[in-house]
């Protein structure tokens, strides 16, 4: 999964030459061999590197505070969304729903790498949600829909249908 994500990210960043990745270990951690230094290991390390390579450092946050928040969510992405079991899903959705109640993006008021990788990571969960659950976690759904429509982001993932008119308005 991570490899396809990285290749989508490369396309989003409009990097000319696609990289060749390998994986290591049981968890298939992505590795990028570089010609002039030690190999880069791990989704976040490689993704941040790609962003820098594309000279889009604003995607990592444009202030000290937002850089920290971006890193926080990138970490959340690999620790919580790379392997979760069924029982975790509701906790994840609940936490995110609360967090996104007063936010448009994951970090501050800008679209960042955190939005992209959180979107890639949570996609399988959202894909499985029933319409009613999507409404229950409206803030997550709204954010998700916004990001999947962000130009150039979706790439390898199928679109998820989101209704703008609530059909279960009586719930909460």
């Amino acid at each position: 999964m991570a490899l396809r994500e990285l290749s989508s990210l490369e396309k989003f960043l409009e990097l000319k030459k696609p990289n060749k990745y390998s994986t290591q270990g049981d968890k298939k951690v992505p590795v990028l061999q570089s010609s002039d230094g030690p190999p880069l290991v791990g989704l976040i390390t490689i993704a941040c590197n790609l962003v820098k390579e594309a000279k889009r450092s604003e995607l990592l946050g444009d202030s000290a505070e937002s850089r920290a928040v971006v890193q926080q969510w990138l970490e959340y992405r690999v620790t919580k969304l790379n392997n979760y079991n069924k029982d975790d899903i509701r906790t994840i959705l609940k936490d995110l729903n609360l967090y996104l109640q007063d936010k448009t993006f994951m970090a501050e008021n800008q679209f960042t790498l955190a939005d992209i990788l959180m979107y890639y990571g949570i996609h399988p969960i959202i894909l499985d949600l029933a319409m009613q659950e999507k409404e229950q976690f409206m803030n997550v759904t709204r954010w998700f829909d916004h990001i999947q429509h962000y130009p150039g982001v979706r790439r390898h993932l199928p679109p998820v249908v989101v209704l703008k008119n609530r059909i279960y308005p009586s719930r909460h």
Binding site: T104, M138, T141, D145, H146, H149, L163, K164
Partner: peptide, 10 residues
Amino acid sequence: LNTRTFLVGE
């Protein structure tokens, strides 16, 4: 705006 990020479109 409950279900939308911006007023019209995305």
